[in-house]
Design a binder for these strands. Structure first.
Length: 666
DNA sequence: GTAGGGTTAG
């Protein structure tokens, strides 16, 4: 079994086979009037042959995402049967165009059980309680229910967290099959009821590979890795679930991988027999497949253990596109673009994902040119390709390039999604372009339902562009869709625009609502205190960082605190703080002291601060200029002249527009 | 043409 596709098809075929006896049963009971099998095989009459090929064409078009063409074909003829209608309904259901599906269903002259089931599954897959009621309504009204109808309803209730209703249906359905049981197990696990899932699994008289797979993966989703491992070890050895057991193993390997428990993943990987005699009954499919290898390689890649990943990759003959992509992304995450490029070059058929991975890797190391080159050479771009490019330009601060790409994207008819839009909002923030930002906001409102990251990008954009009231409107509007970043953005926005009172007011609200602040919150809070000259408030907040939240103040907080006490004229205290702080003072710290010295005419400490700055940034003219002006202000012309001479001696050229040295970056 | 379970990027 070299190709994983085969195993998938094998499974699908097996499923279809399961339907035959079931369908026959329903059919024989006379509850269904149409003839569901009529078009499965061409008959002698041309009319039937035409119908058969029409239905085949329609489902082919739907499979290839060409629903409009399918509909045109559907509309072009009157020679349709129920299968034709059902295929069309199924196409709409798959694309979640439930209204269109329903319209066809209502117009359908002769509905069979599949038509009803399709509509029910359509409503179920839309999710939400409104749709589940609609599904239930159809279920109640339909003339003859089969096992599929019951199972669809059960899984619908399970997905919506209504296990009570699912259980009621399960208990009163006339005939249950293995899928009914599996749906219940999945449902319990989906709703965190591990015990009942296991109980149902144990009560089943007949289990298949999916039963065990569902239990194992559900347990893993509930964080019960070890229980999953035990279940697999215990039931995996029973014959009934022997075939395709490898799926459950693969799930477990991936589960351990996600938790960083690579050793255990490897343990189970090693337990899957490498090779088994295919002639032996029952064991034929129980061996590692390409997914097993890929899952294990993935574990190593996630851990950053690229050597072990590579070892397996080189060892296995079962490689597919997935394996190559996983290896490449491993190198990309370690910024080893040389090795990534080498593998990419050796890869037989790179797909869009491979190209995208390479692009994001080049972006990560700042190679805009190479990223661009790959982007232009790739045969098939998708939304992720565009998003990676735009996000890359934004992260590398080439905002103009990002905007150019974005408009090119729109011109080529690609529809932006939340990823695109939040990148572009960051671009607007970078450009401080309120006009563009508002246009993107319009687009956001039209195309996506707002979520936390999008709202945060909007708040940041508006506040950075000076429209702080817009930012506040959004902040207030989305009461529940907020996280600590939203709070930080709002507080920081106020603080950086000098609205200290508002910044502190929002901070107080935040603490009242028990939102845990981060160290970024305190940078803004302390800066707000500095701007407003609130010495005691600043002192209190600085102290509370450690005493109330257990946070060790970092260099940025010291800088802000030096600013606070320094502005107030307590220069000695500021100096003492610098001398005792646990981290190395940076330019912001010394800059705050120097600024304070200038305001309060303390030439002595100003010199200390300026010299420290000169050591930190030998090319910068700012400390020289500040010191010079300071000496000039107090009339120490000799010292001023000395500074000027030092500047000339050290080849310092005065740069214009270098006004601020404090730490108010938020 | 309909119901349940497995590994990848922005």
């Amino acid at each position: 079994m070299r190709n994983p596709i085969f195993s998938v098809y094998g499974l699908r075929n097996a499923r279809h086979l399961c339907h035959w006896p079931m369908r026959n049963r329903v059919f024989n009971s006379g509850s269904v009037t149409s003839v569901p099998f009529r078009c499965l095989r061409p008959r002698s009459s041309t009319r039937d042959t035409d119908l058969y090929s029409l239905n085949k064409k329609i489902s082919h078009l739907i499979r290839n995402d060409r629903i409009c063409d399918a509909r045109a074909l559907f509309d072009s003829t009157n020679n349709r049967n129920t299968v034709t209608w059902n295929s069309m309904i199924s196409g709409y259901v798959q694309r979640r165009e439930i209204a269109k599906a329903r319209k066809l269903f209502d117009e359908l002259p002769k509905r069979d059980v599949v038509s009803w089931n399709l509509m029910i599954s359509g409503y179920v897959s839309c999710g939400g309680s409104r749709y589940i009621e609609e599904a239930r309504d159809l279920f109640n009204r339909m003339p003859g229910r089969d096992c599929v109808s019951w199972n669809t309803m059960i899984s619908g209730y399970a997905k919506n967290g209504r296990m009570d209703e699912a259980l009621r249906l399960f208990n009163c359905m006339p005939e249950r099959n293995v899928i009914s049981w599996n749906a219940m197990i999945t449902g319990f696990l989906h709703n965190g009821d591990v015990l009942r899932a296991i109980e149902f699994f144990e009560r089943m008289s007949e289990r298949d590979a999916a039963s065990l797979s569902a239990l194992v993966s559900g347990l893993i989703q509930n964080g019960e890795l070890d229980k999953a491992a035990r279940v697999l070890t215990e039931f995996g050895n029973k014959d009934e679930a022997r075939a395709d057991l490898v799926h459950a193993y693969n799930t477990l390997i991936a589960g351990y991988g996600q938790k960083g428990r690579v050793e255990e993943a490897r343990h189970f990987f090693d337990q899957i027999p490498f090779y088994l005699d295919r002639g032996k009954q029952g064991n034929g499919k129980f061996q590692r497949n390409v997914v097993s290898w890929n899952s294990m390689i993935m574990c190593y890649v996630k851990e950053g253990d690229i050597a072990s990943a590579r070892e397996l990759f080189d060892l296995t003959t079962e490689k597919d596109t997935f394996s190559w992509n996983t290896m490449i992304s491993g190198y990309v995450h370690l910024s080893n673009m040389e090795e990534a490029s080498k593998l990419f070059g050796e890869m037989p058929n790179p797909d869009t994902l491979s190209w995208n991975t390479m692009i994001s890797g080049f972006m990560e190391i700042g190679s805009l040119t190479l990223a661009n080159d790959f982007f232009e050479r790739m045969p098939q771009k998708n939304l992720v390709s565009w998003n990676s490019m735009i996000a890359g330009y934004e992260k590398n601060e080439d905002y103009k390039g990002a905007v150019k790409l974005f408009s090119q994207m729109l011109r080529e008819g690609e529809k932006p999604d939340r990823h695109t839009l939040s990148s572009v909002l960051s671009v607007c923030t970078g450009l401080v372009d309120l006009h563009l930002g508002m246009q993107i906001h319009q687009l956001v409102a039209k195309t996506v339902t707002p979520d936390v990251p999008i709202n945060n990008a909007l708040i940041t954009m508006y506040s950075r562009c000076g429209a702080i009231n817009h930012a506040r409107t959004i902040f207030d509007y989305f009461k529940l869709q907020k996280n600590v970043i939203s709070w930080n953005a709002m507080i920081g926005g106020y603080a950086s625009h000098g609205f200290s009172e508002e910044a502190l007011e929002v901070f107080k609200l935040m603490t009242r609502l028990k939102v845990q602040p981060t160290y970024i919150t305190f940078i803004s809070v302390l800066n707000a205190c500095a701007h407003a000259g609130l010495v005691e408030e600043g002192r209190k907040q600085f102290k509370s960082m450690y005493s109330e939240y257990g946070m060790e103040p970092q260099v940025e907080h010291y800088a802000a605190f030096v600013d606070i006490v320094g502005r107030h004229g307590q220069l000695e205290e500021a100096m003492a703080l610098i001398n005792t702080m646990p981290c190395k003072p940076d330019r912001a710290v010394w800059g705050a002291l120097l600024g304070a010295c200038r305001v309060h005419y303390n030439a002595e400490l100003a010199r200390v601060a300026a010299e420290a700055l000169m050591r930190l940034e030998p090319e910068s003219s700012a400390p020289y200029v500040l010191l010079y002006n300071m000496y000039a202000d107090v009339g120490q012309w000799d010292d001023a002249a000395e500074v000027r001479m030092m500047m000339e001696k050290n080849n310092i050229i005065k740069q214009p527009a270098y006004s601020r040295l404090d730490s108010s970056h938020c």
